[in-house]
Design a binder for these strands. Structure first.
Length: 592
RNA sequence: GGUCGCAUAGCUCAGCUGGAUAGAGCACCUGCCUUCUAAGCAGGCGGUCCUAGGUUCGAAUCCUAGUGCGAUCACCA
């Protein structure tokens, strides 16, 4: 039973014995630091069942608790707030109960229903950029948080490997590529991306030519020879033309190889992959079925629609007049395919930007209408765009922050700062390199994950990312500091720690209170799909630790009992930092 | 125009199901390295919580209207 649960029973008993009234629930909050006490009971809500002055009621309840509950050692009432002081022994006992537990806060027995988390899901025509980075970090972290909260999780992505945009880079490569192949200096995804840009340049050139010949802009955009060729290519691809398919396979493989390097650098992974080129056909099948069952309707021109006007939405197309698949068709197919492949999956999380809020609203609704019971457990993890001070990132215009470059720059900055501080003499060059990467990535990941997913991020490359204050490196630094203490502590037998004589320092108590919150933070973050909650929790924990560290001597404690206790407390804090950062996908260094 | 999201200190962000005098970091200013790593600690400065109504003992938080910013409403993805 938690402290609050215990106190709740006693407060209810107090109200019953003092006022002969039944309380449905008791409202608690942490006592503000300017008042004495550990837990606060809010008296106001009780006024509904107990008439009287809140201060007087608070006093009476407080006295009752002091007389009847061993845990309570004192109380005070300010306005309608009953501040309760708890015996140190409660906190010491609690700490001893979690001290050796490596899994404290983490739920290991898994739910029967698995969750599939989709993230990344790039187009295969350009390299990953900062926008993808937010997606990848969020998706990976939410997957890890769900795991830690007791869910079985499959990480996946949907690879958008077909369509007109893919044909554009293929066509440009065919025309201008001269058999160029990826090299060590030019990854495959970058190479393909270059031809996507090339297509756009040539296309714009053709448009301006046509307009010079008197065509309207609208017509010119439709009639540009390059676009017509690209459309031809898509038809050939759908017809299975050998040359086109061969080129498609070759270029896509280059991109996949390039992406793999980036994912590995970021430190994320996937359990299974889906390709739109495989799932769009299944989508078509279900469109046909939905047409039979009346979920969809067909227009005179042959196009198929879903009428959502009764649900307050518009009509949505699910199949073009020429019978080819649209985005929605594919997503219907992909969802169904996933459940077929992994029957234990009872729900899915889609990590996709908020520009597609409407799309997912419609998709989930259509899947419900098609009668899938798992459709009620679909969640769109919608996140805000990452914008630059100059505005939106656009691949075709080259105004993007490239993912690989960004990661490298972060490591470089970490290197600069580390060299200035000069604490790493005994490290080998390889170890230093590894550490710079850990710190640089830690800074980047924390910077992005600490923000509520819903909010947009304005990323200023010049101002760059901080390494001080509420940042990844600050938290990593605290972890490293603790490891340093543990190396020096040499506490041989802290299992049989005697704590009878111990009285807690305020900073120690504060740390234990913060540790106590950890399991609930993990659960909460899972429910809300929010790594930001974990990040902010960890920051608070680390702030508390640093304050403890600078105000209380750990290794220089007055007694062995005290020293052992503080070492064990520090160790538990560091393990909690490590677990919290693990679900954020951030590593912690042994020293820095 | 319809729909959805966001708006808190100069900047970047917290603020859980409504609760005490709205909190951090950065920046700026003061102190603290012969003692466990100063990427740190202790403190100062800084707020009409977008506006106006409403609900309530109590509103940054809930409701309504408005303003600003963003997204979306494609036989693009």
């Amino acid at each position: 039973m938690t402290l609050q649960e215990t106190l709740e029973l006693h407060v209810k008993a107090a109200i019953k014995s003092l006022f002969k009234a039944e309380l449905e629930s008791v409202e608690f909050q942490a006592t503000r630091k300017e008042f004495a006490g550990d837990v606060t009971v809010v008296v106001f809500p009780m006024l509904r069942v107990v008439k009287g002055n809140p201060v007087v009621i608070g006093e009476q309840v407080g006295q009752y608790l002091l007389d009847n509950v061993d845990l309570v050692k004192g109380f005070n009432v300010v306005k309608g707030f009953l501040n309760i002081e708890i015996n140190d022994s409660y906190y010491i006992d609690f700490f001893l109960s979690i001290k050796g537990n490596d899994f404290y806060g983490i739920v290991n027995q898994k739910d029967d229903n698995a969750v599939m988390v989709e993230y990344s899901s790039p187009n295969t025509n350009k390299p990953l950029h900062l926008g993808h980075v937010r997606n990848v970090l969020l998706g990976y972290s939410v997957a890890e948080i769900l795991k830690a909260s007791g869910k079985k999780v499959y990480k996946t992505q949907i690879i958008n490997d077909r369509g007109i945009h893919i044909c554009k880079s293929m066509l440009a490569y065919q025309k201008f590529g001269q058999d160029e192949a990826p090299t060590e200096d030019l990854k495959g995804d970058k190479l393909v991306g270059n031809y996507y840009v090339k297509f756009d340049q040539e296309y714009k050139f053709e448009i301006s030519n046509l307009m010079a010949q008197g065509q309207s802009e609208e017509d010119a955009k439709k009639n540009a020879p390059l676009l017509l060729e690209a459309q031809q290519m898509l038809l050939k691809w759908e017809a299975g033309d050998e040359d086109v398919v061969a080129l498609w396979k070759k270029m896509n493989q280059w991109v996949y190889d390039g992406f793999d390097v980036t994912y590995k650098n970021i430190g994320v992974d996937f359990d299974t992959y889906y390709y739109e080129s495989n799932t769009y056909l299944l989508g078509k099948e279900f469109v046909a079925e939905g047409l039979k069952s009346g979920v969809f309707e067909q227009d005179a021109d042959g196009s198929v629609w879903c009428d959502l006007t009764e649900d307050g939405l518009d009509r949505k197309i699910v199949l073009r007049a020429d019978g080819t698949a649209v985005y929605m068709t594919q997503d219907i197919g992909t969802a169904i395919q996933r459940i077929k492949d992994y029957p234990d999956v009872g729900g899915m999380v889609y990590t996709v930007g908020n520009e597609q809020d409407y799309h997912f609203k419609v998709l989930f609704l259509i899947l419900k209408k098609l009668g899938f019971d798992w459709a009620k457990n679909l969640f769109h993890l919608s996140y805000g765009m990452v914008d630059l001070p100059s505005g939106k990132m656009k691949s075709r215009e080259g105004t993007v922050v490239d993912a690989d470059d960004l990661i490298k720059e972060m490591a470089d900055t970490a290197e600069e700062i580390s060299k200035e501080l000069g604490k790493l003499e005994e490290y080998s060059e390889d170890e230093k390199k590894e550490l710079y990467k850990t710190i640089g990535l830690g800074a980047l990941k924390y910077y992005i994950l600490k923000v509520d997913p819903k909010k947009r991020i304005l990323f200023d490359p010049k101002e760059s990312i901080d390494f001080q204050g509420n940042t990844g490196p600050f938290i990593q630094y605290t972890y490293a500091r603790i490891q340093s203490i543990l190396r020096k502590a040499n506490v041989s037998n802290n299992e049989t720690m005697s704590t009878v004589e111990l009285s807690l320092h305020d900073k120690e108590k504060q740390l234990i209170k913060q540790l106590e919150l950890f399991p609930e933070i993990i659960q909460n973050a899972a429910v809300q799909h929010s790594p930001a909650l974990i990040a902010n929790y960890t920051y608070d924990l680390v702030k508390d630790f640093n304050s403890f560290y600078q105000n209380v001597s750990i290794l220089g404690a007055d007694s062995d009992v005290e020293k052992n206790f503080r070492v064990a407390l520090s160790k538990t804090v560091s393990q909690t930092i490590k677990k919290a950062f693990k679900v954020l996908g951030i590593e912690v260094p042994e020293r820095m």
